[in-house]
Computed example of a mutant assay.
Amino acid sequence: MIRKVKPQIRVVGFDDGAFSFSSKLKHEKTILIGVVMKGSLEVVGVLARWITVDGRDATEAMIDAVNSSRFKDLRVILLKGITYAGFNIVDLERLHRETNLPVVVVIRKRPDVLSMEDALRKHFQDAEERITLLRKAPSLVELIPEKLYFQAVGLDEKTAAEVIRVTTRTGFIPEPLRLAHMIASAVMTGESRRE
């Protein structure tokens, strides 16, 4: 339980690397990077796992990365959306339960869930299982009108908003997520991409 969000709160932010359309067809892997930080200023470590493009292993990879890491003082997991490596959907409740950490999902654009469900039904035999994960996710909370949304599991909305504020240095995205994006894209393409 987080009573007060301190400026140096230990968090990990996960993002995935780039992948091609052909990698979707071949069920290849892409990198999953977790950046561990104290607030928004000090990087204290980096976690890495490989996840399957359009697979079902993102949740397990995150759980393993957190639970087997040396970072035992983590307080919050930050995610950039709930879909990784295409439609590798994170089970937020399981991630929270098996790491014993609250999860805050940060989203820049309001997702079109109906279009996502249509795409899943069109391309995946296990579409209904994936759709169940999408629907289980908490409601979106608008933090900055039309610019930033979040979902929180294991944390009240006010505290989740404070975690986002404390871990954001510039722009809208928390620093651990911004850095995870840059590192993951550099691993996969040879050069980091802008957030």
Score class of each variant (00 low, 15 high):
128 E>D: 11
5 V>S: 07
143 L>S: 14
122 K>M: 13
113 V>N: 10
161 A>F: 10
115 S>V: 09
73 D>P: 13
25 L>W: 01
176 P>H: 01
168 T>E: 05
137 A>Q: 08
56 R>M: 11
48 A>S: 13
166 V>S: 06
133 L>Q: 07
182 M>H: 14
110 R>N: 05
170 T>Y: 10
110 R>M: 10
29 K>E: 03
34 G>D: 10
43 V>C: 13
128 E>S: 13
77 I>F: 07
172 F>Y: 12
30 T>R: 00
90 V>F: 10
53 V>L: 05
139 S>P: 02
77 I>R: 08
50 W>Y: 14
51 I>N: 00
162 E>Q: 14
32 L>H: 00
78 L>Q: 14
176 P>Y: 01
73 D>I: 12
184 A>H: 14
166 V>T: 05
101 L>C: 09
89 I>H: 02
104 V>W: 12
76 V>R: 12
66 V>I: 12
67 N>R: 01
66 V>H: 01
37 M>G: 03
65 A>K: 14
194 R>I: 04
165 R>G: 04
58 A>N: 01
1 M>N: 14
161 A>L: 12
16 D>N: 15
177 L>Q: 00
106 V>A: 12
92 L>K: 03
147 K>M: 12
29 K>W: 02
117 E>W: 08
173 I>G: 00
152 A>T: 05
97 R>K: 14
108 R>D: 09
52 T>E: 02
89 I>M: 08
133 L>I: 11
125 Q>I: 11
157 E>H: 13
69 S>R: 05
159 T>E: 09
89 I>R: 02
148 L>P: 11
28 E>G: 11
130 R>I: 07
